[in-house]
Simulated assay, not measured.
Amino acid sequence: MTEPTQAKPRTRRGIKIALGLSLAVNLLILGAVGGAMLNGRPDGSIRDRMDLVRTLGLGPLGRALDREDRSQIVARVGQDRAQLQAEREALLAATLAFVTAVEADPFDREATAAALAQQRDHVRGLQERGHGALMEQLERMSPAARAEFAARLRQSLERRRDDRR
């Protein structure tokens, strides 16, 4: 004989939906508050400096710099905030033009390529600006500071290479 099994009480579907919506709203509020705390000027928190360092195309080079060197690069590049902001906005506009071209039906390869080339030109301009500021900073650093920078960069690159194996 088999013993009768007790059915587990089922949670009502409405309660599950309410809990899911509550979680979604809480995450939305948390994201908005976190984003507001991290947002600011390029010379603001370290998060903001790293955002500008990435915009300037320095990537791992910028991460290998110590905090003071990174701050000096950001200050140097940020001296003309209006032009920097205009370059960032132009890059955004070029990227949005690319998206619009990709969405077009029928697909226009030439328009898409032109929008992509415009985006590339803005990225190249920002990267040249960042590389110029990096070169100025490297010239001002002592040989010991440059060696420390190179060691941090090498360690970071080797760690990334090892992670990909």
Score class of each variant (00 low, 15 high):
residue 2 T to L: 14
residue 2 T to S: 13
residue 3 E to D: 13
residue 5 T to V: 13
residue 7 A to E: 14
residue 7 A to G: 08
residue 8 K to Y: 06
residue 10 R to S: 05
residue 11 T to N: 03
residue 11 T to E: 07
residue 14 G to E: 12
residue 15 I to W: 10
residue 16 K to T: 14
residue 19 L to Y: 02
residue 19 L to Q: 15
residue 20 G to D: 12
residue 20 G to Y: 08
residue 21 L to S: 07
residue 25 V to I: 15
residue 28 L to C: 08
residue 31 G to R: 10
residue 33 V to I: 15
residue 36 A to E: 00
residue 37 M to E: 05
residue 38 L to K: 14
residue 41 R to M: 10
residue 43 D to S: 08
residue 44 G to A: 09
residue 48 D to W: 08
residue 49 R to W: 07
residue 52 L to Y: 01
residue 56 L to E: 04
residue 58 L to K: 00
residue 59 G to N: 14
residue 61 L to H: 11
residue 62 G to D: 01
residue 62 G to S: 04
residue 62 G to A: 04
residue 63 R to I: 09
residue 63 R to D: 11
residue 64 A to Y: 09
residue 65 L to T: 05
residue 66 D to I: 07
residue 67 R to E: 15
residue 67 R to Q: 13
residue 70 R to D: 01
residue 72 Q to K: 09
residue 72 Q to A: 05
residue 74 V to H: 02
residue 75 A to I: 07
residue 77 V to S: 00
residue 82 A to F: 03
residue 83 Q to P: 02
residue 83 Q to H: 07
residue 84 L to D: 01
residue 85 Q to D: 15
residue 86 A to H: 07
residue 87 E to W: 12
residue 89 E to P: 00
residue 92 L to W: 02
residue 92 L to H: 10
residue 96 L to P: 03
residue 98 F to Y: 13
residue 98 F to P: 02
residue 101 A to V: 07
residue 103 E to Q: 15
residue 108 D to T: 07
residue 110 E to I: 13
residue 110 E to C: 02
residue 112 T to L: 06
residue 112 T to M: 13
residue 118 Q to M: 07
residue 118 Q to R: 14
residue 119 Q to A: 08
residue 122 H to S: 05
residue 123 V to I: 15
residue 124 R to K: 14
residue 124 R to Y: 04
residue 125 G to T: 15
residue 126 L to A: 04
residue 126 L to F: 02
residue 127 Q to T: 15
residue 128 E to P: 00
residue 128 E to Q: 13
residue 130 G to H: 09
residue 131 H to K: 08
residue 132 G to K: 08
residue 133 A to S: 11
residue 134 L to F: 04
residue 141 M to G: 02
residue 141 M to W: 11
residue 143 P to M: 07
residue 146 R to S: 03
residue 152 R to Y: 00
residue 165 R to W: 02
